[in-house]
Amino acid sequence: MIDALTANILSMVYIIIGGVLISWSVHFVPVGGAPAAMAQATGIGTGTVQLAAGAGLTGLVSAGFMMNVTDNLPLILASGAVGAMIMIAVTMIVGTWVYVYGVGCVPSSAKVKVDPITKYRQDLYVSQGTEGHGLPTVSFVSGVIGGCLGGIGGALVYYALIEVGLAAGLTAGGSSTVTGHELVGIAAMFAIGIFFVNAVIPSYNIGGTIEGFHDPKWKKWPKAVISSFVATILCAVVAVIAISQLGGI
């Protein structure tokens, strides 16, 4: 058990970096929660975990797709990042259509007076009694940055777990049987488990809604990153041992 850990120290470092990146990325995603679903807060109208998981798991799938053809780490990370960025961007643009053409409100932030990117005035357009609505440009850009970081984090965790399995003597090549592939399945499930743990911890840190990197709450990120760092060490130890055991059966 101990030699499995010492032999895979680099993979564990990758898993921990990945977990920390996921935790940090959640702070960039403009999450509005239930108030945003009623167009009473800026952001996408669902919870942090759902958004982070949606984007991150898409990144995981696209990273896995890239791993099918190459084992070049930068390419795999890029594929994961692009997959997650596309997913979060599509979610945000469709959300914006609904807010603008369906609800009929102007995308505006209540946390800043002027959008830091477009320099447009925000406070004039915030409806009375709401904390902003829709997705102003700065939130959109922030969300894409969050998707990028989350996708890189998810891909890094998945890549490291596959590497642990390969070191234990398993293969990750294409499988043609109906029952699928052991290593890919177990690495994917551990990656998803680690992803959810690291998506929920920052969501408790944010506590409901966040608009993006211009939000004052964004400055709380070190707390969540430290928590995720500790939690991911535990998960990494457990995951590396479980996958190493797979070589023996």
Binding site: V49, I194, V200, I206, A242
Partner: peptide, 27 residues
């Protein structure tokens, strides 16, 4: 009151659960 929705705690439950379950069964 968690500050975020109730689903988050169900997701962390299964996230921790899946990591621990596969580890325990393996060793």
């Amino acid at each position: 009151g968690l500050g975020t929705g109730v689903p988050s705690i169900g997701m962390i439950s299964l996230g921790m659960g899946i990591v621990a379950a596969l580890f325990g069964l393996s060793v």
